[in-house]
Deep mutational scan, measured.
Amino acid sequence: MLEGKVKWFNSEKGFGFIEVEGQDDVFVHFSAIQGEGFKTLEEGQAVSFEIVEGNRGPQAANVTKEA
């Protein structure tokens, strides 16, 4: 699992990017966010995740919000 911070997330469109120190930003789709209820992320929020190869390159999977 990697750790990063949410760079930005558009809850209307359901996607955004996660910043990872020393690496390129990683695309995140709302469907990759773990948990119940409305799936969104806040700018600057700490998250842990895995990287998988998507249709358009690397993207986040199994995203969990850090306490």
Rank of each mutant, 00 (worst) to 15 (best):
N62M: 10
T40P: 03
F49N: 00
V6R: 00
Q59W: 08
D24N: 14
F38N: 07
E50C: 05
K39A: 07
G22P: 03
G35Y: 09
N62L: 13
K5A: 08
V20Q: 08
E19S: 08
G44M: 07
I18T: 01
F38A: 15
E12P: 11
W8C: 05
T40I: 13
G16W: 01
E36F: 06
M1N: 10
F27P: 03
G22M: 09
F30M: 06
E19M: 15
H29M: 12
G22F: 12
V26E: 01
Q23T: 12
G57Y: 06
T64S: 11
F15D: 01
I33V: 07
V6C: 05
Q45N: 10
Q23K: 12
V52R: 07
Q45I: 06
I33Y: 03
V47L: 06
I18M: 03
V52P: 02
E36K: 07
N10L: 10
E21N: 12
E50Y: 14
G54T: 14
A67L: 09
T40L: 10
L2R: 07
E3P: 15
L41K: 01
P58I: 14
Q23P: 04
D25K: 04
K5F: 05
V63H: 00
M1W: 07
E42I: 11
Q34E: 08
S11M: 13
G44V: 02
I51H: 04
Q45F: 07
K7E: 02
F27R: 02
F15G: 02
I51K: 08
E50F: 15
Q59V: 14
F27H: 03
K13W: 11
F9G: 01
V28D: 00
G14P: 00
F9Y: 07
G14E: 02
E21I: 10
A60P: 01
V26N: 01
V28L: 07
F17I: 06
Q34N: 14
E66L: 09
G54K: 09
G14K: 04
H29D: 03
V20R: 12
V20H: 07
I18R: 00
E36R: 10
A32G: 13
D25M: 06
I18D: 00
G16R: 00
G57C: 04
E43T: 11
S31D: 05
S48H: 09
V52A: 12
G14S: 02
K5D: 03
T40E: 07
F27A: 03
A60D: 00
E19A: 13
K7A: 06
V52C: 07
A67D: 14
P58F: 10
A61C: 05
E53C: 05
S48Q: 15
E43P: 07
V20W: 13
E3Q: 15
S11T: 14
S11P: 14
V47R: 00
F49Q: 00
E3L: 08
Q59R: 09
S11Q: 11
Q34W: 05
E66C: 05
T64V: 13
K39S: 09
G44Q: 10
G37F: 06
T40S: 13
V63M: 03
T40G: 14
F15C: 04
R56P: 13
V63E: 01
S48T: 08
P58Y: 10
A32W: 03
